[in-house]
Simulated assay, not measured.
Amino acid sequence: MKSTQDYSEQIVTLAEWLQKSKYTTILTGAGMSTESNIPDFRSKDGWWNNIDPRTVATTEALDNHYDLFHEFYSMRTNLLECCLPHRGHHLLAEWEQKGLIQAICTQNVDGFHSAAGSDQVYELHGSINKFRCADCSRIVSREQFLNKERCSQCGGNLRPNVVLFGEMLPEECWSASLSHIHKSDLVIVIGTSLEVYPASQLPQMTEGKTVYINTETNGKNQDFSLIIQDKVGNVLAKVNEIIE
């Protein structure tokens, strides 16, 4: 363990808690991926075509405004072609391999945690890298969706396999995430505003210590045991320097 004199008290505390914890679960949100140059579409600066994406990523838009829905998700799908997991994603994968963390529950749909090498990943809001028919759930290809084809089986519209506003979270994924949270003596929340229910409730469901890491805190997260306001990559890199 390296000397801690060059690190903030919060970073040192997190490093100590991580090393002492017997069961650690990570919960990540959009702020985990913004450092991979993926926009946080929920932020005001990230609004798309002057439209709040929260009005596009809905079952109502899928059913009644499919052209707009398809344009939005085609843009997001194509955007991923130019983006890769950043160092923070890879550090979490390394910590899992070392037994420092046991699971990652994520609100992100980009698949970057798995791409970086993490194994125990639970995608609460689905995956933008998989596609299906909106009506019969037939699995289709990325190309079929981007080409705006209709389902060859029932003629329905195609969609990414993400959880839209107005839909339930995948039951198996939600149950597994709850199980990990309940077992944890340390839960580290990274890059999420905790505004989207029910994932926002997860940090409250542990009896262990809770840590909140984000570039903005806005005074909403005072119930956490530890709050670190900084870029995700910076925090994870500094903690890793201490524990490696």
Rank of each mutant, 00 (worst) to 15 (best):
C151K: 09
C151V: 07
S152D: 13
S152K: 14
Q153P: 05
Q153H: 10
C154D: 10
G156Y: 11
N157R: 05
L158M: 09
L158E: 00
R159E: 13
R159Y: 09
R159G: 06
P160F: 04
P160R: 00
N161I: 02
N161K: 15
V162N: 05
V163G: 03
L164A: 08
L164R: 08
L164Q: 09
F165H: 10
F165G: 08
F165W: 02
G166H: 09
E167N: 14
M168R: 10
M168N: 05
L169P: 14
P170G: 07
P170T: 09
E171V: 12
E172T: 13
E172V: 12
E172W: 04
C173Q: 13
W174V: 13
W174N: 05
W174A: 11
S175C: 02
S177Q: 02
S177K: 06
S177M: 01
S177C: 14
L178N: 04
L178E: 05
S179H: 02
S179E: 00
H180W: 04
H180S: 10
H180Q: 12
I181N: 00
I181G: 00
I181K: 01
K183T: 06
K183H: 03
S184M: 03
S184F: 06
S184P: 10
D185P: 12
L186C: 06
L186I: 02
L186N: 06
V187H: 02
V187P: 04
V187T: 02
